[in-house]
Design a protein around this nucleic acid. Structure first.
Lengths: 248, 248
DNA sequence: CACGATTTGTGCATGCCTTCACAAATGCCT
DNA sequence: AGGCATTTGTGAAGGCATGCACAAATCGTG
């Protein structure tokens, strides 16, 4: 994951009059909560109703102390000697992540990738409803994908307001991404997930997360390169460092 | 981004016998190099041949001091008072990332998302060649996508060896991901990009990077939630601590 | 050749994140 | 009822990353 811009930890812990009660979460913790949530759902399906930090941490692939500290930020309600109640922990994390209210998502750019995202079942199953599709190409407008009609981007303001869109996904080519982002911001959208390989310029109050597939591969490539150059080292080199050629 | 397991910074700075010379890069730096690379390519297209850290940092969306420090790890060859030579910086970053040698990629799972990834032009254009497609569904085997035939996963060992695959992409449903990963590891694959919403269990020498679309949305959802609860606060509230019902 | 403008490379301070290790709390068993 | 095993919650230490601020280096110009 990778963030576009690093953000400080989330300020404000006031108890609002609306009953809201958002604690002050470090950004690193926020990024892990969804992982915990998924692990919890998995455990819930197996019928488990109480889980220890050790088990849950294992399922989520993190250190158990880290998990406990993360949960402690949620005014966590684990029971010492026992563990965490699965159902109530799920509820708490979902609340904190704002998933209690169903979020509607707009998807801009129904090309190759956009098509796949529009049909991706993983969104609906995890609390997100793709409510509108957009494209700039007139030939695409009107097309139906998974029960949704593709709108022209010019209709953004109208549809965003109508459907109460809270999050937008940009899956356009790089050169279109910035203008789409501008249009979204103008419509009042304050959360963007950007798949276009381009750094977006947005006001401070707008959150952008970026997913760049090529970058992920390049990072892996680096490690491949490094591993390769290590194993290419002559065996005379005392294998002190991690990668001994043929471990027992 | 998001990593599956945090890794310490990259050890080893020996000059290998093969003329390799990989410096000791912090993981955070590695994650940013691809971004710099893309910015550089963009600048190169505009005909620019020297760039200052300030300009490049702007294009990549980072602090200029951070950029300079990152580049300094590459035994960087900037020129004081002038800037960085675009062409040679591109070459150096591509070398360090291991992009000099073309990397061949295998893609497992040609469902909804896999299909899109197989056709994604962004890979080829950035040094990655998708060389083989796999699926477990016999009905999909034999299908041709973008000039490639879909193999059955049982053929993994054969094809991986034949095509000298160095990186694999998993785009299967969650429940298939672990067994696919096991098969890949058994074939000697040591770098995996995982799109399945499942924490993979792999040996230490295997690198896994994870891209989970729902998680990205959930992180955005959190910030939406938070922003919404902030604007809902009454202006009278001067509350300092968490639990005061209605401060003085 | 010397000077001033520019820009890199980096020491340092600060803050965040991770992890260990342990006290506090809980439930069970005798 | 008391003690023991278990597990949470957290204080504290260490490591990593960020960003400022400045010295060192280079170029162009007179």
């Amino acid at each position: 994951m990778s963030h576009q811009r690093d953000r400080a930890s989330t300020r404000n812990a006031q108890t609002g009059p609306s009953g809201l009660d958002l604690p002050d979460l470090p950004e690193a913790t926020v990024a892990r909560l969804p992982e915990y949530l998924r692990a919890l759902h998995g455990l819930a399906e197996t019928g488990l109703d109480v889980v220890s930090s050790e088990e849950l941490a294992g399922a989520a692939g993190v250190n158990s102390a880290k998990l406990r500290k993360d949960l402690s930020y949620l005014r966590s309600s684990g029971t010492r000697g026992v563990g965490y109640d699965v159902a109530s922990l799920i509820a708490k994390i979902e609340y904190v992540l704002g998933l209690s209210q169903h979020r509607t998502v707009a998807l801009v750019g129904v090309g190759n990738l956009g098509h796949a995202l529009a049909g991706y079942a993983g969104f609906e199953s995890r609390g997100f409803h793709i409510a509108a599709l957009f494209d700039a190409d007139p030939r695409r407008v009107g097309e139906r994908i998974g029960g949704l009609r593709v709108h022209h981007v010019d209709e953004l303001p109208l549809v965003v307001a109508q459907e109460r869109i809270s999050i937008a996904v940009i899956a356009t080519p790089a050169q279109a991404a910035q203008s789409v982002a501008d249009a979204l911001v103008a419509c009042g959208v304050t959360s963007i997930l950007n798949f276009a390989p381009k750094v977006l310029n947005v006001p401070d109050n707008v959150d952008v997360r970026k997913v760049d597939l090529a970058i992920e591969l390049q990072i892996l490539s680096f490690h491949e390169h490094r591993k390769a150059s290590l194993t290419a080292l002559p065996s005379t080199l005392g294998g002190v460092l991690g990668q001994e050629a043929y471990g027992s």
